[in-house]
């Protein structure tokens, strides 16, 4: 069982440029299945797999305790563009 607040605080502490975070508990409350949208310019210049590896590393302890973890990692610019285009 991993608390949503723990995921958020861990990411906030590790990503100084974190602009937006949306955490969705898809496990109907048991805390084992999260989907996370992370918007941060810390991802600037990193290809997707490197961004995911970065997040996996930050949340290593938490992910190990979950059944499923899904992530999307965007820069602020990408997020704004996708929001505008309605493809978010």
């Amino acid at each position: 069982m991993v608390a949503q607040s723990e995921i958020e605080s861990t990411l906030r502490a590790a990503l100084p440029k974190l602009a937006r975070i949306e955490i969705e508990d898809q496990s109907s409350g048991c805390g084992e299945n999260y989907s996370v949208l992370i918007v941060s310019d810390d991802f600037e210049g990193l290809i997707t797999i490197k961004r995911h590896r970065l997040v996996n590393e930050i949340l290593r302890k938490q992910i190990a305790e979950m059944h499923a973890f899904s992530q999307r990692t965007l820069t602020v610019k990408q997020y704004e563009a996708m929001k505008k285009a309605g493809t978010l």
Binding site: H52, N56, R72
Partner: peptide
């Protein structure tokens, strides 16, 4: 792979990614 989840896709020995990455690709 130093990757915490399954599934994992490999193409010619190279780790491509898991579900999120395969979907976005």
């Amino acid at each position: 792979s130093e990757w915490p989840t399954v599934p994992q896709l490999y193409v010619n020995g190279e780790f491509v990614g898991g579900c999120d990455i395969v979907l976005s690709m």
